[in-house]
Amino acid sequence: MGATRHRRPRAHLHPARWLGCRLRNGNPLRRGSDRAEGICALFAVLLLLVAVPVTILIGLNIAASRSSAAARERAERQPATAVLLANAPDSIGVAAADGAAGSVPVRARWHVGDQARTGTVYATPGLHRGAQVPIWLDHRGRPVAAPPSTTQVTMSSAGTGLGLLFAIVAGVGAAWLVLRWLLDRARLAAWEREWRRVNPHGNHWVR
């Protein structure tokens, strides 16, 4: 039977021990670059720990602000029903600022009190003439976008907060990778200088 190969076990340090080895003053193997790496790692961890509650507070503030704006819009706008005066196109066009996504502009008629008005509203593609479409009107009786619902405000605010948190994490991660690359280059250069000092002629070891 052939000889069994034994793999050399890989050393894995707990993150706390890894950090302690780089920050502890009594470590004889600690280099200046190790200490700088440990300090930056500690700063990055603290920054991420602070970023979580900060982004939560920012998200809550954004949600409160958007909820107030949506409440004002609901108070300033009123729902109504429009009757289409033409068939809605089958193809989805580009909705304007006051049109919902996936809707098409169609001529329609609606009432403001006892007064009938006509204009352009946005409806689902394929609707036929005479179909009733729910719309929202401003204080002048003109069609406007529907105010955002509570669910939309919550989802939008949560998305903003998560996006901010992801940007912070990505920025810290990118900075950490750049720092490690610079430190590794500095360590390699220091190792080469030390090797030249020990072996100035560049001789190879002979076994």
Rank of each mutant, 00 (worst) to 15 (best):
V172L: 02
Q152F: 14
L177A: 14
G173A: 12
P147E: 11
L179N: 01
W181G: 13
S149D: 12
P147F: 07
L162P: 01
G161M: 15
G171M: 02
G173P: 07
S156F: 05
A170Y: 05
A131G: 02
A189S: 14
T160A: 15
L183N: 09
R185S: 03
H128W: 00
T160G: 14
A167E: 00
A158N: 12
E192T: 10
L162S: 09
S149R: 05
L127V: 00
G141W: 05
Q132K: 11
G130D: 02
R185A: 08
V144P: 10
G130P: 02
P143K: 12
A131W: 01
V133E: 05
T154D: 08
W191H: 12
W136P: 00
L179G: 02
D184F: 10
E194C: 08
V178A: 15
R140G: 09
L179Y: 05
L177C: 14
R142F: 06
G171I: 02
V178P: 02
E194Q: 15
Q132R: 15
L162D: 07
A131M: 00
V153F: 06
P134E: 10
W176A: 12
W136Y: 10
R193Q: 09
R129I: 03
L165N: 12
E192Q: 15
R129N: 01
Q132E: 14
R185C: 04
V133K: 00
M155D: 12
E192H: 15
L165Q: 14
A174E: 01
P148I: 11
R180K: 13
W181M: 10
I168S: 02
S156N: 12
A146H: 08
T151P: 00
R129H: 00
T160K: 10
P134I: 07
P143M: 08
G141Q: 06
A145N: 06
L183Y: 08
L162Y: 12
R185V: 01
